[in-house]
């Protein structure tokens, strides 16, 4: 844009000439970028939300601390279809629990976000209260090392701000947080 003019023109008209050239170049540049990227982008409507792949998640605990939300958008989900409905639940009780009651010393969840309901002998139904859950993943670790792995971490899309670059994904130790299409916004274990 700063080439010396060869044409013998007055300063104003020379400037106008440059300006027109610049406009054309800039415009065509825009069109080029748009034309180059548009065909590829229009086809891929999806891949626009962040989600955790529970197969890769190692429950390092960073989801709790790294999310931009004051309380992490990562919550524990529960796949009832996978759950064993155990009395001695590895996600509900601490590892070396002596008595199976709801006393604080026996509970694993630091916020008390897991509630359980008696179904029939010997089965118990477990439910996550997402308002209390802070995504620390302790129960997930317990469940996947002692149980069926029916508890798993997911990004609650209602809360997630869908940052351009997910802060948790940046520090995720196993690369479990990836972009997914809107149609597969959750990677649920019971509806695989």
């Amino acid at each position: 844009m700063k080439k010396q003019a060869k044409q013998p023109k007055g300063p104003t008209s020379r400037r106008d000439f440059f300006k027109t050239c610049g406009t054309i170049i800039a415009g065509s540049g825009l069109l080029a970028v748009g034309g180059y990227l548009a065909p590829r982008s229009s086809a891929t409507e999806g891949d626009s939300m962040w989600q955790i792949d529970p197969e890769l998640c190692l429950q390092c605990g960073r989801c709790q601390t790294e999310c931009v939300m004051p309380v992490s958008a990562v919550k524990c989900f529960h796949a009832n279809q996978v759950c064993g409905y155990c009395d001695l639940c590895g996600g509900y009780y601490r590892a070396n629990v002596k008595e199976l009651n709801t006393a604080a010393e026996n509970m694993l969840c630091p916020t008390g976000a897991i509630t359980r309901k008696y179904v029939e002998d010997p089965y118990f139904e477990y439910t996550i209260d997402e308002d209390l859950c802070n995504g620390c993943g302790k129960c997930v670790k317990g469940c996947s090392s002692f149980g069926n792995g029916s508890l798993f971490l997911q990004i609650q899309q209602e809360i997630c701000l869908n940052c351009n670059e997910c802060q948790i994904a940046k520090v995720c130790v196993s690369g479990a947080i990836q972009r997914v299409p809107v149609s597969k916004a959750y990677r649920l274990k019971d509806k695989a």
Binding site: P70, V71, A103, A104, E105, M107, P110, T111, G112
Partner: peptide, 20 residues
């Protein structure tokens, strides 16, 4: 010890949620 844990647990959870 157990009752101490229970009290402390309640306190810490209260502190956490009120703080938030």
């Amino acid at each position: 010890l157990a009752s101490q844990i229970r009290q402390l647990d309640l306190l810490s959870r209260k502190a956490y949620f009120t703080e938030k």
